[in-house]
Design a protein around this nucleic acid. Structure first.
Lengths: 123, 123
DNA sequence: TTCATATTTCCATAATTATGGAATCGTTAT
DNA sequence: ATAACGATTCCATAATTATGGAAATATGAA
């Protein structure tokens, strides 16, 4: 996954209402939820919610399908998985950041480094 | 980890320069890097970098210590781990989103749901 | 058709975030 | 002291994002 995609996803999730919406969609599972249900659940006016859902959609985190007059938004698990993988591989010290469910690896050693200034001070 | 903290962390990482800085710090390991080194590495003017490092700091993703005239920024692995855990637990379908390094669990079943409109249409 | 419902787009406004030069602060060397 | 260095804060400006009412669009019902 490219870092620009990851940034888009993080940007999308880094907002109270969007994170809440996404969590609700994850909870709802593959069958998803309609904007009106989400609007009710989250207490957001329709245009505001629509704006946020569009953000999530553009970030590739949710998909939309139509069912009659309703749209159905559903979480894209693969996309989310990609984000988590990126963070785990690039932004954690490898295995050190694996979820608790995995056999926890040792944290990177705290080898206190010899900095120039410290050496100078001692001398 | 509270969702407000997670949002702060995602917000911090959802920016090109900050994500790059954080990745560099993760790569650098516990001994960290100074702003001048980062400034060089990322090609950012000092005040701009300082601004972004402050964001990362406020989000709790990096720590700062002083060594002589230099400051030393280091990635906070625990914080990052907390973020990944939150995303894995709350924003993926549980095990479905675990990193590839873990035994991959089955994806949530795509049980195509019976929506009201679909039922109506058939009737 | 005409009407009602679900949702989005449009738009103006408010609020937040990013940028980088100039000035400032803390630390070390002379 | 004073100079030099590393880094931050200050500040004005530009750019982006969020908000929600009003209007428009699409679909299905009467």
């Amino acid at each position: 996954m490219k870092s620009t995609q990851v940034i888009a996803a993080l940007e999308a999730l880094a907002q109270e209402h969007r994170l809440a919406a996404f969590r609700a969609l994850v909870q709802a599972g593959p069958q998803g939820l309609t904007p009106s249900v989400l609007s009710e659940k989250l207490g957001l006016p329709a245009p505001t919610l629509s704006f946020h859902l569009a953000q999530l959609r553009h970030a590739g985190l949710v998909s939309v399908t139509r069912d009659g007059r309703s749209l159905i938004y559903a979480a894209d698990y693969d996309a989310m998985s990609g984000v988590v993988d990126f963070l785990t591989e690039n932004c954690c010290a490898g295995a050190a950041c694996a979820p608790a469910s995995c056999a926890p690896a040792a944290k990177p050693k705290e080898k206190t480094h010899e900095t120039p200034a410290r050496a100078r001070r001692r001398a």
